[in-house]
Structures are given as structure tokens and as C-alpha cells.
Design a protein around this nucleic acid. Structure first.
Lengths: 173, 173
DNA sequence: TGAACTGGTTTCCGAAACGGCAATTCAAAT
DNA sequence: ATTTGAATTGCCGTTTCGGAAACCAGTTCA
């Protein structure tokens, strides 16, 4: 299982660096920190991933990839069935965020679709029919500012990364 | 600026693979796809990053790193000031998610803190005092199931990644 | 029609990073 | 002080990366 509270200073430093840029090399990280061998950093990263303290992944800007229909769902679930319903919802990769909360509703979720029809089908046809779901409130997301700690285009109108090229593709294979 | 709708099939495929594992090598990706040179994949990735279509980063499991106090904020903002307030809130890295929504409230946010005191200080001292903010509703997050498309420990009780070591650190440097 | 152009793709290459292994060092326990 | 389990480190062959130049369409313009 995942242990908490067993992260030391080094782990936290590594995590915060990787949060900024998940593709940083171990040697780069070690270099910035100092007094740590590049090999150790590599070990730590491997362990962090292995224990699922972190996950390294690409976070697409939803609108940039065509998922233009975004919504926040508030779901009222019959008492005692939250975990169950959540497990079911978690299976859909259109669900980007899902949590149990206090207050009027039981679950809060962020969902991304290509079309309104798909969203409707999801709320009505899928969520609404899960046993234990008593109510589903849908609030459309008008603008996404930040998504998992990462600013989206709505907020990041700053300079592009000082990275590689900036060409765009036209022909696919 | 960030262009949308200029992603072709290859881009989407690459993105979906990187979403699963942000550390996949270009050659690995190219290999799985076929008919594409490893170099091209590398070019595409560079472009995707450069245009901010995607961001690759480590996504820490909040509870795993000690951010045990998580909450959903619903914020009512004076008409016309949503962007402004959002820009301000987006600066805080305790804010992991932020979006403008339809419905009773203007903004929805997910925030992570180490202690209740910090959360309180944030809602009362920070958010509450931003000009244009009329109301702040705080719902505690009792359980996080999924965070940016990635299942958290609450849902991911499956096998660890077939990765490197599983040792744990004890001594920091 | 064909030459110049443009922009992505591909190849090539040296430098850097990675993964596995074994030796080493450290800290806690006896 | 000795033992012991675990993390750190160095080493090495393999893989991956970054840069530059050649390559190849499709497009524009004479």
C-alpha cells in the first residue's frame, strides 16, 4: 500500500522539481541539488513512481485537444454507496477529477467531452443510471484556468517554453 | 498563441500515450505506432510542449505528500471580474484546479493544504479579501478518487508499476 | 511546365541519460 | 564494538536525446 509520511526532504525537493517539468533528467536534478549522486536521484524517482506517490504524465489542455465540452458534476449518492459509485465513475477516462466532498452533494467530478450530446449521454445515460445515484447537477465549465496545478491557456498567456521547435504538422501517416 | 484544431492523428496518439506515462521514450512510442521515425515523434513531442498543448509533469498524490487538508471552493464573483479573480487565485500553488462555471457560483477550485488553519487562512484571509469576491463556500474533500485523469490511492489499489526499486529513504542529505 | 520555396520528415552523429549490478557506507540494534 | 539491513554510490553497456544537414513533398510564382 501507499505509505505517507515517509518522504524526506530530498523526496520533496525532487517531487517539486518534477512537478514543474516531468522530463527533467536525474542528473539535472542532482546537479541543482548538490551533494547527491545522480544515481540516487534516479533511485528516488523510481521509488516514488513505484509507490505511486507521484505519477508522471502528460496533461493535455482540454480545449487544445478538442475536448471542448467541459462540465462539473455534483452528484448526490445514497448514503453508504459513495465508494461504489466513485469506483464506477473512475473507470471513465472522460472523468478527469473525482472526489467525495462534504455538503449538499456527495461527489464532485470534472468531465470532458467533445460534444454536448456526449455529455448529456453521460449524465443521463451513464451516471443517472448507476444504482445509488439520486441526483446529478451539471454545471458547464466556461473557462478552465488551472488543471492539476498547471495553468491552461486561459491563464498561461506567457512565453512558450524555451524548448525545441515550434513547427506544426500537417500531414499524418 | 496556442492554436487548437491543428493536431493530427499522430499528435493525438502520442498525447494519449504520454498521458498514461509521461516518461515514455520517443523510440518506444514510435515503435508502438510504426511507420514513424523515432525522430519525428521527438519532434512532435517538442512541438506539443512548446505550444503548450500538453504539459508533462509529476502529479503527486496529495495525501501521499502530506497535503491532507483538501477542499473544494465555490466562489461567487462580482460580474465581470471572474478572469481577474481567477488570475489572482491561479498564482497560488495550493490551488490545483480552477475553472469558471455556470450556475450559482462563478468559480470552482480545488485546494490542498497541510493543515486546517492554512485552509482557513486561505479562504478567509486570501480569497475573501480579493476585490470582487462576494461569497466563498468551502466543501471539504473527504476522499480523492481521481485527480487529473489519474487514480489516486483511494482507487488505485492495484499492483505497483513494474518499475525499479521499492525501497524507501530514511536519511536525507 | 519547371524552378525556387517552405516546412515537416528522416538520417547521422556525438553527448548524455538510463538500467542493472556490485561494492560501499550508514544508522540502528544487539 | 559488532552485526545487519538498507540506502547510496560507482561502473558499464545500452538506449535515448539534441543538433545539423539532407531529403521530400506540396505550393507559389514566373
Amino acid at each position: 500500500m501507499t505509505n505517507r509520511d515517509d518522504l524526506d526532504e530530498l523526496d520533496r525537493t525532487v517531487i517539486s522539481m518534477l512537478t514543474e517539468d516531468g522530463r527533467l533528467s536525474a542528473s539535472e536534478i542532482a546537479g541543482r541539488i548538490g551533494n547527491v549522486s545522480e544515481r540516487t536521484v534516479r533511485n528516488r524517482i523510481a521509488a516514488l513512481l513505484q509507490n505511486r506517490h507521484i505519477v508522471i504524465g502528460a496533461i493535455p489542455d482540454p480545449t487544445a485537444i478538442g475536448r471542448d465540452v467541459q462540465a462539473e458534476l455534483l452528484i448526490e449518492v445514497e448514503p453508504g454507496k459513495a465508494d461504489e459509485v466513485a469506483a464506477e465513475l473512475g473507470e471513465y477516462d472522460e472523468v478527469g477529477y473525482l472526489a467525495a466532498i462534504t455538503g449538499r452533494y456527495t461527489l464532485a467530478a470534472s468531465v470532458f467531452f467533445d460534444t454536448n450530446a456526449e455529455l448529456f449521454e453521460f449524465t443521463e445515460g451513464t451516471v443517472g443510471k448507476i444504482p445509488g445515484v439520486n441526483r446529478v447537477v451539471t454545471n458547464m465549465i466556461l473557462r478552465m484556468y488551472k488543471i492539476y496545478g498547471t495553468r491552461t491557456t486561459a491563464l498561461s498567456q506567457r512565453e512558450p517554453q524555451p524548448n525545441g521547435a515550434g513547427r506544426r504538422a500537417r500531414r499524418a501517416k
